[in-house]
């Protein structure tokens, strides 16, 4: 085929997913953790779209739509929880949640 090889799209998705995962693991600010989650979901979407383009089928884009729905739902709930955390602890530090007991 004369287009972009599937492997290159997969490498791009892998790099972006790893960057998002690194963001989730390294950052302690909850906002950055949520951004890292968005990046990871976005990388998953790249895999779906690239596979759909590789086989010339619309199913990849349909699955991307579902990933998009999931990302929107996750962002809404996550940000609502973030606001609650900030209201209770006056900080966005993930380690502040360490002290939450019963």
């Amino acid at each position: 085929m004369n287009g972009i090889p599937l492997e290159h799209s997969l490498v791009l998705a892998g790099i972006l997913f790893s960057l998002g995962l690194a963001g989730v693991l390294v950052r302690r600010n909850l906002l950055f953790v949520l951004m890292g989650l968005e990046v990871m979901l976005n990388a998953t979407g790249i895999v779906f779209v690239a596979a759909g383009a590789h086989y010339g089928q619309p199913d990849g884009q349909v699955m991307f739509l579902l990933v998009l729905t999931l990302a929107a739902a996750e962002a809404a709930i996550g940000l609502a929880l973030l606001l609650q955390v900030y209201r209770k602890f006056r900080s966005l530090d993930v380690d502040a949640l360490n002290e939450m007991r019963g």
């Binding site: 790099i15 972006l16 960057l19 998002g20 951004m35 890292g36 990046v39």
Partner: peptide, 8 residues
């Protein structure tokens, strides 16, 4: 990739 690197 560059932009995502800057995000984190």
């Amino acid at each position: 990739i560059i932009a995502t690197l800057r995000v984190i």
